[in-house]
């Protein structure tokens, strides 16, 4: 399968990438890992007139920690994060990175591309919303920082102007006594999850939850912050009754659609269960336990 004809431009710097976007117009697309764009192009479901390659811009693939913030360059690969110390510091990052698609996609696909694509089932859009994250965008007028909750507006739609490029993602490192988990159910390795849930809990003490963030993935046009579910835990003891209330509130907040991954009813059921389990794992991690978690697959 071959893509429709397009021109290819390799940007040496961010400035050049932005300039190319301006010059080549609306039909130009930025390419980073290409793990979504290239399959769409080869099926001719996407027909960009030009591709602007940002893979060769230096400094765009660094992972840095400073002043309590993790800064992830736009072209950092999922596999880089899977294997980085950032994943140890913030377990939710590892849960997410380690289960995205398959090994080949993780080696090539980028975090910036994933967020800019804004697929409703993308893992990063869900996982990073459970943390305090923002997206740094570069355009003709310089850089701007957009909180992640404002960045993704709708399915496949972000606030990025045509002449802007994502350059980095900034994540505030959660405080002590905070822990999170990203759980997703996938049918097989290369596909998007049927449903996913990200939970970040900050504990007051062993039982009391000070703060909670609960995010649902694949069950709406964007990742959904389940605020009623969060309220069910905030300032409350992490006991079964409250956890169940949070899971029920999460189910109520979901807006799933039926497709080949599952019926709407099933996705609603599933996402609540994932929330419940993610709360359990997040709490244990907040208490300092090391708990493996992440994506689960049909059959095993």
């Amino acid at each position: 399968m071959y893509a429709a004809p397009f021109s290819y431009h390799r940007a040496a710097s961010l400035q050049e990438a932005v300039k190319l976007l301006q010059e080549l117009g609306e039909e130009a697309r930025v390419i980073a890992g290409g793990q979504s764009l290239i399959p769409l192009m080869k099926m001719r479901m996407a027909r960009p007139a030009a591709l602007i390659d940002i893979n060769f811009i230096s400094g765009l693939s660094d992972i840095q920690t400073s002043k309590g913030e993790l800064r992830i360059g736009a072209t950092v690969r999922h596999a880089d994060l899977e294997n980085s110390s950032a994943g140890t510091t913030i377990p939710i990052v590892h849960d997410c990175a380690a289960g995205i698609a398959d090994v080949q996609v993780r080696n090539q696909g980028t975090i910036g591309g994933s967020l800019a694509e804004a697929d409703p089932s993308g893992d990063w859009g869900t996982a990073l919303l459970a943390l305090e994250s923002s997206v740094i965008c570069a355009g003709p007028d310089g850089q701007r920082t957009v909180p992640l909750e404002d960045f993704i507006k709708d399915a496949y739609t972000t606030v990025l102007a045509h002449n802007e490029v994502v350059t980095a993602i900034q994540v505030k490192i959660p405080p002590k006594h905070s822990g999170g988990a990203h759980l997703a159910f996938k049918r097989s390795a290369p596909v998007y999850p049927t449903a996913s849930a990200s939970v970040q809990l900050t504990m007051e003490d062993h039982h009391m939850c000070k703060d909670a963030r609960i995010v649902l993935g694949c069950v709406g046009l964007t990742a959904i912050r389940a605020k009623e579910a969060e309220k069910a835990l905030q300032g409350k003891a992490l006991e079964e009754k409250n956890v169940r209330a949070a899971a029920d509130a999460a189910r109520a907040a979901a807006e799933p659609q039926s497709d080949m991954r599952g019926s709407a009813d099933y996705k609603r059921l599933l996402v609540g269960t994932l929330v419940k389990r993610a709360i359990g794992i997040a709490a244990r991690r907040a208490r300092g336990e090391s708990v493996p978690a992440g994506h689960e697959y049909a059959g095993r």
């Binding site: 390795a189 596909v191 998007y192 697959y297």
Partner: peptide, 17 residues
């Protein structure tokens, strides 16, 4: 409805016990 591997989901190593 299952004309691609994303929808047909052929078995992968992750599914095999």
């Amino acid at each position: 409805l299952t004309a691609t591997f994303s929808d047909y989901t052929p078995i992968t190593a992750m599914n095999i016990p």
